[in-house]
Write a protein that binds this DNA or RNA. Structure first.
Lengths: 246, 246
DNA sequence: GCGTCAAATTGACCTACATCAAAGACCAAC
DNA sequence: GTTGGTCTTTGATGTAGGTCAATTTGACGC
C-alpha cells in the first residue's frame, strides 16, 4: 500500500521510419501472421517502425488511442495506476505481442519499454479501414485478444488466490513459456524487469519478491547466474509449487 | 486459503428449443447487435435457446469447447479452481453477456447459473463458419472480447492493489453500472450471488465481505432492504472509497 | 406457526505479507 | 578504480485480513 514514483522519459514524438513488413523477422508470431503476400503489402503501407531505448513511455493510460503497436524486439511493461500511486502491472510483452487496447477511444493502460525495444506502429483508424477488407486480419486479431483474455483470467486466479511463493513460481513458469530465451536452453530465462516491476505484477512488494527468490535459490530450484538472467534447475518442483501441490 | 466444495447439478443434456433471434428482446446488447435482418436469420439458424434453474453448471473448465453462449435472462458466475479447491471468480454475467472463451479448444473457466437463467447457445464450429461470411459479426465479437479484456485488467488492479474496503466498493459500483436493476432506481442493485461468491470474486473471505458490508451500512453508504437487494445511499462516498480517495 | 438447514454475521485470535530501516551489490560516469 | 546513485537483499516489527468457532438470520416445507 505504498505510493510510488516512476521517472521515465516520455515519447513526445517517436522516431519512426517506414520499414516493409516483408523484412520483418517475427511475422509468424505477430499480427501479420496468416496474411498473404498481397495483404502484407497493404498492412505494410499503414505501419511504421519505431525504436526506443530503455525506460521510455510508449503510451499513457487515458490518452486518445490513436495507434496500435506490435513489439518486434525487446520488451515492454504494461501497467495501471491508482490515484495515490499504487501500481498494478497488467502484463509484460515480448516480440510478437500486441499493445494498444482501448476503452472509449482511450488507452486502458500505460506502456513503458524495459530495454532497447522495436515496435511496429499502426494507425488505429487506418487499421480499422483495413480490417473491413481483410477478414483474415480481423480473425487474427480476435484470436490474439481472446488469448490475452484467457491469460488475464489466469492472472486473476493468481492475484486473488495464490500465495507469494505460488505467485513467483507461476510467474517464472509463464516467462519460461513466453519469453524468448537468450540462451538455447529452455530453462534459462531473461528477466529484463526489476524486482519492483515483478512485485507490481504479482500483487506483492519488492521485498517479498526478493525473499521468495532467495528462498527458491536455497531450495535449489532456481539459480541467478547474472543480473537479469535466471536459470530453472528443478522444473518439476517449480511446477508443483506454482499450483500449490505440496 | 480454504478448500471449498460446491454441490450443484451438472447439465448432462441441456433442454434446448429453437427460438428465432427475431423474438429476442436483448438483441441490441448482445452478439447479434448490428446485424441486418438477413444476417440475423442466419445466426438464428445455428442457435438454440436454453433454460436452466439456479445452481446449474453450464460449462466445465477443461471440457471441449463445443458451444458459445449468450445470456438472455438471469445471471451466471464464471470461476477457475486450483487443485486444492481454492476458487477465483473471473466474472458475473448478466443479459447480453457472452461466455465460452476457450484456450486450446477447451473452456478456460467453469460457469454456473446464479438464478433461473436463459441462454442462447451457438455451436462453435458453425459460428466460425458463419464468421467467414459475416464480417459484421466478427467485428462485433472482437469488440465484445476487447471490452472484456479491459474489464479483466481493471479487475487485476483491484485484486493486486486494492484494500478490502476498496474492493467491495468497486464491486458494488461495477454492478451498479452493469447489472440490470430490478427497481427503476439506478442506486438499487440486485445481488443474486452469495457472500462467498463475492469473496471469491474479490480475493477475500466470506467473513471479510460480510464485515465490510456491515461497515458500509454503519457509515450510511449502503443499506440492504432485503436479501439479494442492495441500495446505495451515498454514491459519491462510495465512488471515493472505491479508488482510495480518503 | 414451527422445525430444519444453509447462509450471514460477529467475535477472538493468528499469520502471511507489508512496512520500515539498514546494509550490501551493481553499474555507469568520470 | 573511485564515486554516486539505484536496485537488491536482509532483518525487525506491524497489521490487514485470514482462520476458527459460535450465534443469528433467513428461506422453505409441513
Amino acid at each position: 500500500m505504498r505510493s510510488r514514483s516512476q521517472v521515465a522519459s516520455t515519447v513526445a514524438s517517436l522516431a519512426s521510419v517506414n520499414s516493409p513488413c516483408e523484412k520483418c523477422n517475427i511475422a509468424e508470431m505477430s499480427l501479420c501472421h496468416a496474411l498473404s503476400c498481397d495483404d502484407l503489402k497493404q498492412l505494410s503501407a499503414i505501419s511504421s517502425s519505431i525504436e526506443v531505448g530503455k525506460g521510455v513511455t510508449i503510451i499513457n493510460e487515458q490518452d486518445p488511442a490513436n495507434y496500435l503497436f506490435n513489439v518486434t524486439a525487446g520488451s515492454v511493461k504494461l501497467y495501471k495506476l491508482l490515484p495515490d500511486g499504487r501500481r498494478q502491472m497488467t502484463g509484460f510483452l515480448f516480440p510478437g505481442d500486441f499493445l494498444g487496447i482501448a476503452m472509449n477511444d482511450c488507452y486502458a493502460y500505460s506502456a513503458e519499454s524495459l530495454e532497447d525495444t522495436k515496435l511496429c506502429r499502426f494507425s488505429r483508424a487506418k487499421l480499422e479501414e483495413l480490417l473491413k477488407i481483410l477478414p483474415h486480419l480481423e480473425n487474427r486479431l480476435l484470436n490474439m485478444v481472446s488469448n490475452e483474455l484467457v491469460l488475464a483470467q489466469d492472472q486473476m486466479l493468481l492475484l486473488g488466490r495464490k500465495t507469494a511463493k505460488e505467485k513467483v513460481c507461476s510467474f517464472l513458469l509463464s516467462l519460461c513459456k513466453r519469453a524468448p530465451s537468450k540462451s538455447d536452453q529452455a530453462q534459462t530465462i531473461s528477466l529484463p524487469m526489476g524486482r519492483s516491476d515483478i512485485g507490481d505484477y504479482l500483487g506483492l512488494t519488492t521485498e517479498t519478491v526478493s525473499r521468495t527468490l532467495t528462498n527458491l535459490k536455497k531450495m535449489g530450484i532456481i539459480s541467478i547466474p547474472a543480473t537479469g538472467i535466471l536459470e530453472i534447475t528443478n522444473m518439476q518442483e517449480l511446477t508443483d509449487l506454482a499450483e500449490g501441490l505440496d
